[in-house]
Design a protein around this nucleic acid. Structure first.
Lengths: 129, 129
DNA sequence: GGAACATCTGTATCCATGTACAGCTGTCGG
DNA sequence: CCGACAGCTGTACATGGATACAGATGTTCC
């Protein structure tokens, strides 16, 4: 850990670490690869318009069957179902069966927080870009 | 708006809105398509391991040149540069030129918040799945 | 048990994009 | 000016994944 760090020998700048101490310190504090991957997966889950729409629909309506989700966000049911699969796998939504219908609702308090934070973020920079 | 909603006529469930009122109410409260797209873009930006790594590196180190970012997260400089392009375009990072080096740092308080929230979220469900 | 219906899944297609290699731009020192 | 070096970008390639269509599964009602 004190040696040359052994990285993939980039195009240039092979030894010339500008601030080796800071680099070492930061390297030590970085999340593990697993953590990073999980985090990225988690954010990518929210990074699809259809899934985001579903989440907002559930956020507003509380609980909806697939059919009503489809109607709410104007996306064909098959697509909704595929999207719900991801959300289910990530435990972001819960499904409750009632007869032949499945009622979905949010199953993660962080989701609301993140969505709100995201919206607030966008609102703050609506002017520029 | 009171009529049949005129959606893409899905596979099934064409008229049978289970809870038409709730659907209508939710539809009215949904963010606009533009908002949703922006939001999804924003989350997708954090949904790539390399970009997430870069952000964490900057979060920990404060400010780093491309070379040091590369060393910190163990990714070749070209890839880092490409990733930084997205982050720059989204105003997530700022670049400061100093001689031939570019020093990057976070330019968005929400990023820290989101990353922390994401990590906290993962920590809370580390056990399962 | 069989028809009708809500939902899920298998599969194919298409597009976005992450990555790497190579070459370009811009800056510094002489 | 010119060489050296930090960083950027063009391009090609491969892969992930979003969507749609068709068919499977599971549930209700008769």
């Amino acid at each position: 850990m004190s040696a040359a760090i052994d990285r993939p020998v980039a195009d240039a700048c092979e030894v010339t670490l500008v601030d080796a101490d800071r680099v070492e310190a930061a390297r030590g504090k970085l999340p593990t690869a697993l953590e990073i991957d999980r985090l990225a997966d988690w954010f990518r889950l929210l990074g699809d318009p259809t899934r985001a729409r579903i989440l907002y629909a559930l956020l507003e309506a509380g609980e909806l069957c697939v059919c009503d989700i489809s109607a709410t966000i104007d996306v064909v049911e098959s697509t909704v179902s595929h999207s719900l699969r991801w959300l289910r796998a990530a435990n972001v939504v819960t499904a409750r069966r009632s007869g032949r219908m499945m009622f979905y609702s949010l199953d993660d308090s962080h989701v609301r927080l993140l969505l709100d934070l995201g919206r607030e973020h966008l609102a703050h920079r609506q002017g520029p870009e």
